[in-house]
């Protein structure tokens, strides 16, 4: 995986609480066997009318938000299903970070494994970002994983938490599977100590 660098980008707001993964990508798009092209299905039921025409009131369809790389959403973003198709779809639209006051656990883990940054901020910052984006779509923020800061246009830097291991992996392009594979000896030792509880092949 490519190391994640600091970046600046404009912000699009979806100020709705509890946005679930069925909205991020509806289940009917999960009959795929790869990750490619899922961006087209992101928020599809919120984005398009029944006849396939775009809903112009939906921010992600608006010209002024084209190219936004940061999504700011209501509380508890990503609740519901474990589908990793959710971060794949969001990244497929060009997003690099999602900001909320808190994230559903599985979504957060999935996002971090793919380099989509789930950024937890306090409610005031969340509200400020929403109004900034709505008042001036060209507003840029800077996100730096190294220093764990999100910098607002007025220069205020807001610290955000990231679990140290995910941060380390993302900054250095380390892949977590490789890390686990290196623990083979310890896993073997565990397996010797604790015999199998079930044998599905029996």
């Amino acid at each position: 995986m490519e190391p994640i660098k600091a970046f600046s980008g404009s912000v699009v707001a979806l100020p709705i609480n509890d946005i679930d993964t069925d909205q991020i990508i509806p289940a009917r798009y999960l009959k795929v066997t790869d990750k490619a092209g899922l961006g087209a299905a992101a928020f599809t039921d919120w984005r398009y009318n029944a006849d396939g025409s775009p809903k112009l009131e939906f921010p992600l369809n608006q010209e002024q938000y084209k190219g936004a790389t940061v999504l700011v959403a209501g509380h508890n973003f990503g609740c519901g299903s474990s589908r990793e198709h959710a971060p794949w779809a969001l990244m497929g639209t060009g997003l690099k970070a999602v900001v909320s006051t808190y994230f559903a656990d599985i979504f957060k883990g999935n996002a971090l494994k793919n380099g989509l940054l789930p950024i937890v901020v306090d409610e005031d910052t969340q509200k400020q970002l929403i109004s900034l984006s709505q008042e001036d779509p060209t507003t840029q923020v800077t996100i730096d994983l190294e220093s764990q800061t999100l910098t607002l246009p007025d220069g205020r830097a807001v610290k955000f938490p990231v679990d140290p291991f995910s941060r380390y992996c993302l900054l250095n392009g380390v892949d977590q599977l490789g890390f686990l594979l290196n623990l083979d000896d310890e896993t073997l030792a565990y397996e010797e100590k604790y015999p199998a509880r079930v044998n599905t092949t029996a």
Partner: peptide, 21 residues
């Protein structure tokens, strides 16, 4: 429940990285 990256982790190593809830 786990995501697909973690499905790969478990398939390959039978282990998972988890922070204690």
């Amino acid at each position: 429940g786990i995501g697909t990256s973690e499905v790969a982790h478990v398939l390959a190593t039978q282990t998972l990285l988890q922070n204690q809830p």
